[in-house]
Amino acid sequence: MIELKNLSAGYGGNPVIRGISAVFVPGEVVGVIGPNGAGKSTLLKAIRGMIPSLGGEVYLDGEHIAAMGRSELARRAAYLSQARRCPDMTVEQTVLHGRFPHLRYPHTYRDADRRMARAAMEKMDILALAGRPMSTLSGGMRQKVYIAMALAQDTPYILFDEPTVHLDITYQLALMRMMRTLAGEGRGIVAVMHDLPMAMTFSDRILVMQDGGAVCMGRPEEICRGDVIPRVFGVTVERFPDGKEYRYRME
């Protein structure tokens, strides 16, 4: 379980997120939504200890993250950033780097690491691309490679920062289904998303952020019923009458 207690964090001593308390549990997809500048990406980085905490605490499975080293944190929670380069290496080499936190200097990959990388590629259905240079892949396929890297990292939690950005709708849906599968395996998934209906359709719970604070956290249907979405985003989202899916209400 990831537990945030009154967490504040930011850059250069200036807080971007303030006083956030939340709990993320294994086996659950939590969608983090909010307008631009709400502090969603900062929240994920703060959970992973990648930016300094300016107050409050983060506990990972009961342990304070301040007591963990960088590698230990990376072995517990994978983080997929928004900004991803197209490295000059093959798919297999890229995925193999997911094993980096599990190794000590000089970080030489073992056969067991190669097996883990290949299993991750198989799971993402990219094993056939193992020898392909990353530069020859489409954006969607590259995204799959990075997710395979996170799977090779073999962590109980995965934090996705806008994973569907720049992807066409087919890849977006495939990615969201993959998140559900990962949660079904017992992993805790926290994903920053911009598409509100998609976030509500595929998440077990939604964390709504605004101006660096958490507005509310709840099940999608509860969030949809209240006035939070119109208040924060100026739009309305409604649930299809006969299903779990959501859509924007055009008025």
Partner: peptide, 14 residues
């Protein structure tokens, strides 16, 4: 090689 993936990705890998 890990650093070549970008600062944030490398930091994400510990």
């Amino acid at each position: 090689d890990v650093l070549t993936l970008g600062e944030e990705t490398a930091a994400g890998l510990g």
